[in-house]
Design a protein around this nucleic acid. Structure first.
Lengths: 241, 241
DNA sequence: TGGCTGAAGATTGTGCACAAAAATACCAGA
DNA sequence: TCTGGTATTTTTGTGCACAATCTTCAGCCA
């Protein structure tokens, strides 16, 4: 019953862009769309009941964020960060989050950590309830909240992008079912920040991220998951570009 | 003589996208297109002799990077970072570059700083020759080279974006003709990195960026440069979105 | 003279259709 | 049965045209 006779006010398409972008992004980050999934333009357009233009826009944006890989004349796929890229991702996070934690130590010594505490508590609850999906999500949010506490939206945006791509890298290369961050390290971090211990806190976040990276299998074997030819073909095109 | 009778292999458009994006980006960063300049789609398309589609693609990308502001039904303008945004930009750079410098101190203690030295020398030469434009560009490159020395392309990309936006912020809010970074601070930084003095180097880069920020006029007065109504109108639309 | 209303012009946003490319299916021959 | 080539089908890329919106300017009234 949504078919109005009027020629449409043009609002729909603008909103559709955001909807496609937001929902697809969410689906990728929450692993509903596993790495390597092909995102056919028509299929996505049908799903959101919008034109292909909105889909193309959203896909381009997602590509810029490193969440989907765009292969010329082949289409869009949920990105599968290479082992090298995964390492760089973690390296970047160590550099950035080290700075964030140092910043937090200076301005949130005593209180102001409430959001972090609330997140860690929620994380504990989820883990206790056996809700692994929520726990994983919250463990990622913890880092985002830290970025938010700097009060700097630029920093927040940068880390958001990094965290998303890290999640993708973990999905792609996880060894067993390593369940994301270890909560007790989060608690330790909160404690160190509240005490304003710059160096210890910086070391803690560094070790924390290193542990996360160690949980992955970043050996140089060819590839995984999706079909061999898919990957080989993709590699060919990526090399040409 | 480039007009082939054949119906075009479709390569042109793909290349055009990159050309429009790259050249426009360059023009913005080098201040050939000052902040506030309107980028009419048709005008850009004519300049590059390409379709409007390529221009739209490039503009969207530039918008994601924060280099152009896109106002619905109004068009694209070279961004004029607000005072708040400028502060956040510098804050983010302090966090990120602090981490980069710490990283460099660990892995480039003795040598490996050659690219930095070469850049600083070139900067000195340009400044001595009175070539302010080149000097400014090189002073920005210095920071990018530091990022590159981490060997982490993710970090490099993040800083590149930050530096570009910072240049825009400086163009928009510069008080007098403050000539970018002070070279002697760059030399001091190199020295500290070579000696591997983490803390001193981190303090130096922090102070360096703080000095750069202090050179700006970030008072909360309404706006500047382009016509008042332009800005008011833009603010209206931005507020509505 | 100043402010308001309405039409004309200019510019952006979106859908659609067609062309190019790749993937797939199919078939003949060894 | 497997290989090689060919035709079909699916999917992406691009240009074009129209609609919506905003800006500008002229005319009109208080």
């Amino acid at each position: 019953m949504s078919e109005t006779g009027v020629p449409r006010r043009r609002a729909p398409a603008a909103a559709a862009k955001q909807a496609v972008y937001g929902c697809t992004r969410e689906a990728i980050v929450t692993r509903k769309l596993p790495p390597g999934t092909k995102l056919t333009e028509d299929a996505v357009a049908d799903a959101f009941e919008c034109g292909r233009g909105a889909v193309r826009w959203a896909l381009a944006r997602l590509h810029d964020e490193g969440l989907v890989s765009l292969i010329p004349n082949r289409g869009a796929f949920v990105a599968q960060p290479a082992a090298d890229e995964a390492k760089h991702l973690f390296g970047a996070r160590r550099i950035l989050e080290g700075g964030i934690v140092r910043c937090l130590c200076q301005f949130h010594r005593d209180d102001g950590c409430q959001p972090l505490i609330a997140c860690a508590e929620a994380e504990d609850r989820a883990r206790l309830a056996g809700d692994a999906a929520t726990a994983l999500r919250l463990s990622g949010d913890f880092h985002l909240i830290m970025a938010g506490l700097t009060g700097n939206p630029v920093v927040e945006t940068m880390l958001r992008e990094l965290v998303s791509r890290t999640i993708l890298a973990i999905s792609t290369h996880q060894r067993t079912d390593t369940s994301g961050c270890r909560t007790h390290e989060h608690w330790r971090l909160i404690d160190l920040i509240r005490r304003g211990d710059l160096e210890a806190a910086a070391r803690e976040i560094d070790a924390h991220l290193a542990a996360l990276e160690d949980g992955l299998d970043l050996s140089p074997r060819p590839a995984l998951s999706t079909g061999l030819r898919e990957i080989l073909s993709a590699a060919r095109h990526a090399g040409a570009a």
